Amino acid sequence: MNQDELSQLLIKYNNQTATPDEKRVVEDWYDRVNDTQPTIEHEDYFTIKNKIFEKVKHQLASNAEPVRKNKLKLFRNVFLRAAILLLALVGVSYYFITRTDSKIFDDHLVSTKTHIKPGGNNATLLLADGSQVILNEAVDGQIANQPGVKITKTKSGELIYSFIDDANTQEVKYNTVTTPRGGQYHLILVDGTNVWLNANSSIKFPTVFATDNRKVEVTGEVYLEVSKNKLKPFFVSTNQSEIKVLGTHFNINAYDEEEYQRTTLLEGSIEITKGNVKQVLLPKQQANISKYSNVIKLKEIEDLDAIIAWKNGYFQFEKADLKSVMRQISRWYDTDVSYNGQIPNKEYSGKVPRNVEVKKLIEMLSYTGIYCKIEKNQITVNPK
């Protein structure tokens, strides 16, 4: 039974339009799921369990009946209906990612010599004089001085710029932090702005900002929590647009290999400029900008957590096409991806931790209908 068939059966069961045979299939499926623990520790799993429990208590209280011989069956049916309601909320794909009884995954699809680990805190700091600091190799504590600031690496791996004085800040000096494929990093600029870089991304910034503005340049994917300063607006430049900020939280996805640059606002307001076109964003809005035009298309985003899932340690796909999914995986695991056969025109949804090794990731992806073979540093996708 595939995902679409299961989804339809769950809907019919919950609407009480399923045939006796269909009810039996759903109840057998639920009994298997109820006996199965997820293959990964996942906070959402326990959240779901708690929600199901609360839903069951509510339904039992509102549907109280005299005790019968089939009390156990009644409880299971009520529990099942609550579970189905909640599965509909979180997406049936969650079951396919966390179940352990599937025989889809084949260990032979992964070479025994393959040990590709997930990415982690890994970045390079380029100083104003051209010297470089490999941040994941640098010792904790002060690692450099720049005009007017000191640069410190914390025990947790953050990079912090701290203001010293105005004595040596007449000339603007720029630093750049760059993550490779398989890297991410968190830094705090001298004005208190927090910056998170995803894999294969960068930010170029002055060590001390000018008197009337704050300007940075970014590539790849970056999440910023900009400190508020009405006297010094914050500007972010990408290869396609400029974003004006007063103080806000937003995510920019501006990878060159992506068809659209996507800027999503979580809090505050920003103004995006592309050519002669300007667009103000409100919270929960996303601006999509094509490489080939100055049109800025707005989209409402309901699940903001999905946008910054990468910052919180997850891949989260929301109706993503196969190539989009694999590009994210390629960047994080520093692997190359190829395709064997025709690429299916399907959409994929699900949430997967980014801290698992490739073998476990491929196993989880197989439950969503993505089948891969990996050897050395190459992932081959085999659409079925």
Rank of each mutant, 00 (worst) to 15 (best):
A199V: 12
N168K: 15
Q8K: 15
G220L: 11
T176M: 13
D101I: 03
V325M: 02
K230V: 14
L266F: 14
N50V: 09
Q342I: 14
L72T: 15
H186E: 14
P20R: 08
D101M: 06
E375L: 07
E363G: 07
A123S: 11
K153M: 04
Q279E: 15
K117V: 13
A287Q: 04
T263E: 11
L72G: 06
T154V: 06
G192T: 06
K351L: 13
K376T: 10
V195M: 00
I374N: 00
L109C: 09
L6E: 07
V172Q: 10
D305L: 09
L231V: 07
T17F: 04
L87A: 06
R24I: 04
L127K: 07
S62Q: 12
K73R: 10
G247K: 07
Q8A: 13
S366V: 02
T264I: 11
G148M: 09
L231S: 15
L60S: 03
L89R: 15
D28N: 14
F315H: 05
F315D: 03
E267G: 10
I343L: 02
Q59K: 13
T179P: 07
H249W: 09
L159N: 03
L304D: 06
D21H: 09
V33T: 04
T219G: 08
L281S: 03
G275F: 02
V381F: 01
Q146C: 08
T152H: 09
S7H: 12
G369Q: 04
T17Q: 09
K71H: 11
G220T: 12
K103M: 10
I188H: 06
N2I: 09
R76E: 14
N50C: 08
N239V: 08
Y255I: 08
A167S: 12
K103V: 10
V67W: 11
N70C: 04
K319M: 05
I97F: 03
K153D: 02
V236L: 04
S366E: 02
R354H: 08
V149G: 07
Q16A: 13
S111L: 08
V110H: 04
G247S: 08
P38A: 06
V56L: 11
R331T: 08
N70L: 12
T179A: 10
I343C: 03
N122E: 13
H115C: 06
E158V: 03
L135S: 02
I370W: 01
V208G: 05
F105D: 04
